[in-house]
């Protein structure tokens, strides 16, 4: 029977904590960027101008159908060659996950926007609103509430996807775990602890999301 010993891991917990902090920083950066990129892509995709909708559609489809790890390698190893700039692991990861999650957020935004009944668009138009006014005041506020569950799900996916940056040596939680496992020769304990850290934080976020969702559903303005 294997003798579990968490002491070496716990004594180096500062390392894991620093890694977790970096995971959160990267997630927050990519989430903020991804939401903005996603909204822009969705609006472009829904535009009647093909010059906007076609490129947006291509970006969305390419980033949704290729593996994120390939994207990350492309941005980290490939892009600097074209741009002849130096790429840090953080920059490459932030860029990749911003666009990648943006592509997924775009589809959520789009689905949310088109789910708003035709009557709402018309009612806003007939009081003389411009397209951008009706988007901002009437459609998006309603769409965002409907999109909330898928948005949360996607954000959690994003947090899990950020583990890929360990492969380009950004010091996130998983990277620090790899380091620690090699240092302590205790991979079982290290990876178990790391899995638990992810499990607990993601379960906690899901729980918060479900609470918020329930609150949205209860507030009367959700239903017609």
């Amino acid at each position: 029977m294997y003798n579990w010993d968490f002491l070496p891991v716990l004594s180096e917990s500062g390392l894991l904590l620093a890694g977790f902090r970096n995971t959160l920083i990267l997630t927050a950066t990519a989430l903020t960027g991804g939401l903005a990129v996603g909204l822009l892509l969705a609006l472009a995709r829904l535009s009647h101008r093909r010059l906007l909708s076609l490129p947006a559609g291509i970006v969305i489809e390419v980033f949704r159908t290729t593996p994120p790890l390939v994207q990350l390698f492309w941005f980290y190893f490939g892009l600097p060659i074209i741009l002849s700039v130096e790429m840090t692991p953080f920059l490459a990861a932030a860029l990749t996950f911003t666009i990648q999650s943006g592509a997924f957020f775009a589809e959520i935004f789009r689905a949310g926007i088109v789910s708003i009944e035709k009557g709402q668009w018309e009612a806003a138009r007939v009081i003389g609103m411009t397209h951008s006014q009706l988007m901002r005041r009437i459609i998006l506020p309603q769409a965002v509430k409907r999109m909330f569950p898928s948005m949360m799900e996607r954000s959690i996916e994003l947090m899990k996807t950020t583990t890929l940056v360990a492969t380009v040596s950004y010091a996130d939680l998983l990277y620090e775990a790899n380091e620690l496992a090699q240092k302590t020769f205790r991979p079982l304990e290290v990876y178990t602890v790391v899995a638990l850290i992810y499990f607990i934080s993601i379960t906690f976020i899901s729980f918060l999301a479900a609470r918020l969702e329930g609150r949205f559903a209860r507030s009367g303005e959700m239903t017609r």
């Binding site: 009944e117 009557g119 709402q120 009612a123 007939v126 009437i138």
Partner: peptide
């Protein structure tokens, strides 16, 4: 549309 008001069959109030 500011000069021409409209009332719909399905009301279309902003929920």
């Amino acid at each position: 549309r500011q000069k021409v008001g409209m009332v719909f069959q399905q009301f279309n109030l902003f929920p």
